[in-house]
Write a protein that binds this DNA or RNA. Structure first.
Lengths: 143, 143
DNA sequence: TTAAAACCCTGTAGCTACTCCAGGGTCAAT
DNA sequence: ATTGACCCTGGAGTAGCTACAGGGTTTTAA
């Protein structure tokens, strides 16, 4: 099948498929006499796997590792478990910091209400004064 | 003050300060006779404000808008409130999708346990079969 | 028959917000 | 005189695409 059909079947854009080929996630397909890429069922399968991993936000590098496990000779799959564990830990860390961010923004938002003018804007003032508070104490002579 | 001192005072790297200048967040400083950048207190203040905004994950483009409000002629600050509201909404959306991601990964992780071999790895199999399930139904003739 | 539409190709640039490096110049102290 | 700390410019690299420009090919409709 040609690239457009593969794109339709997987829901992955044509440019993205070519990108995956370039970075080595997808093996180079055969070529038709006119130079068009000619994909087989193996490519379809592999690309669907890739999409599934990407939807779980697994990085290209990690997908490459998973594909090696999938198509390589059988080994212990502890490394796979570890990969998923690490990814999970990373996402949990991100959730924690985003929640912290959320509450900071909620606090910030409370500072200003409707109808104020910029010089009295509590948000701008808060941003300014908390910035000053975090500056290094050290003083620099002006000369 | 020179760029190294400004970097020390704000905790922002030298390269980053030059980057902010390049993208127009920080006005071009005066130059010493030898070509070194020469910053004044206004730059320090502005840079601290920028750092504060970045720590709240506000984009460069939005910081530029906030700086315009801060240093421009007084106006209604509803646009500032709206900016913060939108940023907050965006972060909340991200938190929701990351939590969904987290539970999907937890489910995935349950699939495989210690000591299995790759062909029997539940994670690999789950990734494969759920990928197949999401493929377009349409069939493509092989010729 | 021909012309338009739809498909494909390569190669390159753009996006975010930095970060790093090469290859230089400048300045204070030893 | 030289070492080391500081500074300069300009360009490349990061992740994962996405969007061209500028071509060629194939199919379909008039």
């Amino acid at each position: 099948m040609r690239i457009g059909q593969l794109s339709q079947a997987t829901g992955i854009g044509i440019e993205t498929i070519r990108y995956y080929e370039k970075v080595g996630l997808l093996p180079d397909p055969a070529r038709l006499p006119n130079g068009y890429r000619d994909y087989g069922p193996g490519h379809l399968d592999r690309l669907a796997f890739i999409r599934q991993c990407r939807s779980l936000d697994i990085s290209i590098a990690d997908i490459a590792r998973l594909l090696d496990f999938r198509h390589g000779s059988p080994t212990d799959c502890n490394a796979i478990n570890q990969l998923v564990d690490e990814h999970l830990a990373q996402i949990r860390t991100q959730i924690v910091s985003m929640r912290a961010l959320e509450s900071q923004l909620i606090e910030l938002r409370k500072r200003c209400s409707k109808g104020k003018r910029t010089p009295d804007c509590g948000i701008l003032n808060e941003l300014t004064t908390s910035a000053r508070g975090k500056m290094a104490i050290k003083r620099f002579p002006s000369h």
